[in-house]
């Protein structure tokens, strides 16, 4: 399964980079979204994929008896998703404002400092 996930992540990265290389600032946003998804999945996959054993301690016990999925990677991804959303929200408003002021979405034309 890791192999398949690796291919998926590679595709995400390729799509994200391609979109970020475009001149349209809106496409840059789409690229950012793809990129953060790709990065999250990368952490998730590298930590090891486990089916059906979430890191939850059964009632009445103190530790999980058997194996469990890596809780640390999950915690990191949780943080990453939320922060990623924050960055996205800020970027979206910023870009909208910029487009409104300079009347273009082409980054080649957004070059002046004033």
């Amino acid at each position: 399964m890791t192999t398949l996930m690796a291919i998926l992540i590679g595709t995400f990265y390729a799509a994200a980079i391609y979109m970020m290389l475009r001149r349209s600032v809106v496409k840059l946003v789409i690229g950012l979204i793809l990129l953060s998804n790709a990065a999250n999945l990368l952490i998730f996959t590298v930590a090891g994929l486990e089916r059906g054993i979430p890191p939850l301690i059964p009632k009445g016990q103190d530790v999980i008896a058997g194996a469990a999925a890596d809780p640390l990677a999950q915690a990191v991804i949780l943080t990453s998703i939320v922060i990623g959303f924050g960055v996205l929200a800020f970027a979206v408003v910023l870009i909208h404002r910029a487009c409104e002021v300079v009347q273009t979405d082409d980054m080649n034309e957004m070059k002046g400092t004033d």
């Binding site: 890791t2 992540i9 590679g10 994200a16 391609y18 790709a38 990368l42 590298v46 640390l72």
Partner: peptide, 25 residues
């Protein structure tokens, strides 16, 4: 973009087969 994607794929495969230390999880 394609090369970067390919690189990431290969990187994941290389990393998962080369894990050396136990995590802190």
């Amino acid at each position: 973009a394609g090369i970067t994607g390919l690189l990431m794929t290969v990187l994941i495969l290389a990393i998962t087969s080369a894990r050396q230390l136990e995590g802190i999880s």
